[in-house]
Design a binder for these strands. Structure first.
Lengths: 225, 225
DNA sequence: CTTATTATGATAGTTTTACTATCTTTTTAA
DNA sequence: TTAAAAAGATAGTAAAACTATCATAATAAG
């Protein structure tokens, strides 16, 4: 028996579902590698096409532009985190335990999982940290939002905020705390790597135990049992 | 008597200090307005030049490129916040009071102050929220950091972390908390405006009292007196 | 007041990016 | 076996992000 995890971002993000074809999967795989290596700005469909021995025109048949490709990848990532959380919290009743597992899942989502061969989760995690904000800090954010392009993240935030309210029904800002956990996790990892004066944690060779401990520390102080 | 507040970002950011000439001040003033209105991506030196009846070449004599201009503006903003904090916490001894004033200064820094005619602080605040990320989420971050281009923000984080440690010397993550206060403030305001499902606060016609209350709520829970 | 220097303006050119278009060849599925 | 869908090859366009050069205007120094 084998369990196949298939994660599907919003339909409006692509012209043709890339996971359904060879070329599509190569686009996903190598765009992740290229964006992580060179950054989103210097990533172009031309370079991607060259890398996979295809053509610019062919890539454009899957994604209207590179912004939508990035949105697709980032949504894929949050769907992935969501899937991990669902699997790991199955049959766990205690909301406090649940939140610990959520934090642990959030952190471990950055480890490569061989289950999906065309996605390197570790590289994708780097992209979400370094480039993810580009998906929503645009002038088109309201438009994109109305098309459902941030659904994966919103669903996740909603699920986590519910667990927070279960632990402490009097806590005034469950959504703020949920999103802050995600954003802090990203920010503090990035700071640790590039602007270490801005954080107390350290991340050596992608060991994220400090991040996990830090998030748990904050949550424990904020939520009364 | 009049107090002149002059805020100066790092020298490496410009080719010629824009605050020292008429054209330079017009560049600052109108780049803030244009970037806020149309977003950083569609902002170009050509459009800016047209707006101020100058030329692209002239703008390039002040800033090497638009990335450095954005860095300049964002640094200006954090210097400005820093100045407000210094003024407002003068002669305040109690660290808890200090932190409240810091939070209040952080929030009120977004109000336009007629003291500096060529800077609209309110528009600049929008830019820091919407585009500030672009200053440090780049492939050149380590380079830029080594040139001191993030000094203003780092100084601020350092100052705030010290106040945090004064309040609660046992708190494990003073730097993380300091930067999280800044980042949460930006994120949650942005979410309130564009992705309201991701936050509990609301920001109506730029009234930031919810943000201030939220930040104080978190701080109160996190730091034992 | 004149002159040298510096600041700004006018204009043109280059490379790269982000597409769009069109036509041909290959693959796949009925 | 054939038609239709997918992919490849190639070319073209508009705008952005500069770079370069020369002319003119403002200013400051002697």
């Amino acid at each position: 028996m084998s369990i196949e995890i298939r994660v599907s971002p919003n339909e409006g993000l692509y012209l043709k579902e890339p996971q359904d074809s060879n070329l599509g999967r190569k686009i996903i795989q190598h765009s992740i590698l290229l964006i992580d290596e060179y950054g989103f700005e210097s990533f172009t469909f031309r370079k991607l096409a060259a890398e996979i021995n295809s053509t610019e025109a062919s890539v454009y048949r899957y994604f209207e532009n590179k912004h939508l490709l990035l949105l697709y990848l980032v949504n894929w990532y949050w769907e992935w985190v969501n899937a991990l959380i669902i699997i790991n919290t199955m049959n766990v009743e205690d909301p406090q335990k649940k939140l610990r597992i959520i934090i642990q899942s959030l952190v471990s989502a950055s480890e490569d999982n061989p289950g999906v061969e065309y996605v390197n989760e570790s590289n994708l995690h780097n992209i979400v940290i370094a480039e993810g904000w580009k998906t929503y800090h645009t002038k088109e954010v309201d438009d994109d939002n109305s098309k459902g392009f941030f659904m994966s993240y919103k669903n996740l935030a909603n699920a986590v905020s519910k667990v927070i309210s279960e632990i402490d029904p009097d806590f005034k800002y469950p959504y703020t705390l949920a999103t802050s956990l995600f954003e802090m996790s990203k920010d503090q990892i990035y700071f640790a790597k590039h602007l270490p004066k801005l954080t107390d944690i350290s991340v050596k060779e992608n060991d994220l135990k400090d991040v996990e401990a830090m998030l748990n520390y904050f949550v424990d102080k904020l939520l009364k049992k």
